[in-house]
Every structure is written in C-alpha cells, then in structure tokens.
Amino acid sequence: MRLPRIAPMLATPGVLPPAAQDDRWAYETKHDGQRAVIYLPGDGSVVLRARSGEDITAAYPELGALGGALGETPAILDGEVLVLDEQGRGDFQLLQSRMGLARSPAKAAQRAARTPAHLVLFDVMRLRDDLTSLPYVRRRRALEGLALSGPFWSTPTALVGHGDLALRATSESGLEGLVCKRLDSVYESGVRSRAWIKIRNVRAVDVIVGGWVPGRGRLSGLPGAVLVGMRDAGRLRYAGSVGTGWSEAERAELAGLLRAAETDTCPFDGVPPVSGARWVSPRLVGEVRYSTFTRAGLLRQPSWLRLRPDLAPEDSAADFP
C-alpha cells in the first residue's frame, strides 16, 4: 500500500497547564533524540523519515524488523530515535555517531552493532484508515493496543493528570523534559501547536569567564560570546561558548568588564580551538543555564543568566563534572 506523507506535529515551548485543567492533559517524557515518522506499508518493509522528510531508514538497520510487527496492517507512527546511555536515558552525543549514515549502509551496520538505536513510539496517525482527525486520547488508545515492544523499540506509557509530579520526576531522573498533550487534540501535521506543550528541564551552573569573541554588525565592539570554564584539580577547563541571554545593557556592561580584564595569555588548560578569541584574566564569575553536558565536557545549549560579583573564582565557581 502506498502511504501518504505526514509531517510530524510539533510542540510549542511553554509551562505546565493550569492546575484546574490538569486532568485534560497527558504527559509524556521529552526525549533527546531524532524525531522520526515511521511508515509501515504492511508488506514487511519499514521507512523512517526525519522531520525534514529525509529518508533515514538505512541509518538504523536494527529497526528493520519493525516492518513485520503489524503483519499486513498498514500504519504510520510517530516517534523518536534514541541511543541509550548506561542509565537507559537518551544520549544525544551517542546518537550523533548514528545520524547522517543513511547513505553509508555498511558503516551504519557497524555502528548499530556498537551503539544500537532505540525507537520510542508515542502516536499513530494511520492504522489502515486516517486517524489524524481523532482526539489524542483515542489515538493513544489505538497505539497502546498495538503492543509494540521489541528489542529496539517500545511504547512508553503516558500519564493523564499529575503534570507537576511528572515534570519533577523527569528532572530528578536527569531526563530532558516533558511534553504535555491535550487529550482532545487532533494531529496537526506539520504544525507547531499549542495543543502540545514542551517543557525542557534546565540546569544552572556557575562558570568562570576566560575569554570572549567580538560580535559583528550591530554587536561590533561588544561580546558576541564569552568563553567559559570550570575548575578541575586546580586547572581551568574550557566548558564552552555562551552567546545568548543578555539584554543590551547587560552586554554593554559585560564588554567593559572584559576589556578591563584583557590579557595576552589564555587562562584555560589547553587553548580552545575558537577563532578570534580574546583572553581575559579569569576573575569574572557568571551563572549560565544549560540542558546537559556533552560527553566531551562542554555545556550544551548554554544561555547567560547573570554575573555573580558575589562569587570569587577561587572558592565559589562550580567544579568540572
């Protein structure tokens, strides 16, 4: 059967629904992976398409067996491809070694043997017939009725109500966040909808500023980004570049502090490979928001929160994880 293309429905960043509406929403774990729409024509084959529409099937050969999971029943499913860490959580750094291999099947097979992917399923848009006009609660019931659980795929449960507890649980478990889905919501193909709300667990950490990169255009003469580090056994280890989070006034204030602290010597243990970097004496402490640390020890998705003039680098900034 030739299946129609369906672009994935997208969630809007936001906060938990009001407590009075809590029981009208379902809550699912937000995973750190690659979004995929899964096409099962009912002939034993499977096609995975990324959010862009690109065919990524060959990048994940271990998911090929899913093609026969529903027999001759044609279906279109929505999910996320993960590579799990030792704690069973999606690790985007591990996943990156699997992405982009759709045109290299031999290499994809080698990587699959070392770092197998896992597909998390969370919606069904077609099951013989089009289901996109049905409310989420009915699509979810249909998905769970398929009992799709295998060596490389699963259908995690969704919690109805208790959003505050669900969000707290994802944070305490070190998971990326939560997706809130209104029970009566239809599947809006290709739309970033308010009927789906994504909440990312954010973390904050104190860092030491060791350099900066000048901005361009309207930011000429101002910092486009600051280079930050954290202590590691008495050394200052580079932890990444932070380029967002300032107001105009804050950026101007920071520019003055950076110019006053300029030095010709890189303060980091090992010079970071950053083009156009200017170094400063490591005496400024700032607080940044971030999602997680990469396996290389760099802050992922960092954003500036504030200067911490109350903290001294030698005794108050956080240690390297």
Score class of each variant (00 low, 15 high):
4 P>K: 06
4 P>R: 08
6 I>P: 11
10 L>W: 08
12 T>M: 12
15 V>E: 13
16 L>W: 08
17 P>A: 02
18 P>L: 07
18 P>Y: 02
18 P>G: 10
20 A>H: 11
30 K>H: 09
30 K>E: 07
32 D>E: 01
35 R>G: 13
50 A>G: 12
51 R>S: 00
51 R>L: 11
52 S>E: 11
53 G>R: 03
56 I>N: 05
57 T>D: 04
58 A>R: 15
60 Y>L: 01
62 E>P: 01
63 L>A: 01
69 A>F: 07
69 A>Q: 00
70 L>K: 01
71 G>V: 09
77 L>V: 05
78 D>S: 03
89 R>W: 13
95 L>F: 04
97 S>K: 13
97 S>H: 14
99 M>P: 04
101 L>F: 14
110 Q>V: 14
113 A>I: 10
114 R>P: 01
121 L>H: 05
125 M>R: 02
126 R>H: 06
126 R>T: 05
126 R>V: 13
133 S>G: 15
134 L>R: 15
135 P>S: 14
141 R>F: 01
143 L>P: 10
144 E>I: 12
145 G>N: 14
149 S>M: 07
152 F>K: 08
153 W>C: 04
154 S>P: 11
155 T>W: 09
156 P>E: 02
158 A>H: 07
167 L>P: 00
174 G>Y: 02
176 E>Y: 12
177 G>V: 14
179 V>K: 00
180 C>R: 00
181 K>N: 04
190 G>E: 04
191 V>D: 05
196 W>S: 08
199 I>A: 00
204 A>D: 14
207 V>I: 04
209 V>T: 07
210 G>D: 03
211 G>D: 04
212 W>P: 02
212 W>G: 05
220 S>A: 15
220 S>L: 11
222 L>R: 08
224 G>S: 09
229 G>K: 12
230 M>I: 00
231 R>D: 09
233 A>S: 10
233 A>R: 15
235 R>A: 07
237 R>N: 06
240 G>K: 03
242 V>L: 05
243 G>L: 02
245 G>A: 11
254 L>S: 07
256 G>S: 11
257 L>D: 09
257 L>T: 08
260 A>V: 05
261 A>Q: 01
268 F>L: 06
271 V>Q: 12
278 R>T: 02
279 W>C: 06
284 L>A: 01
293 F>C: 01
294 T>F: 10
294 T>W: 13
297 G>R: 09
299 L>H: 14
305 L>M: 13
306 R>A: 10
309 P>Q: 06
313 P>G: 02
316 S>H: 11
321 P>C: 00
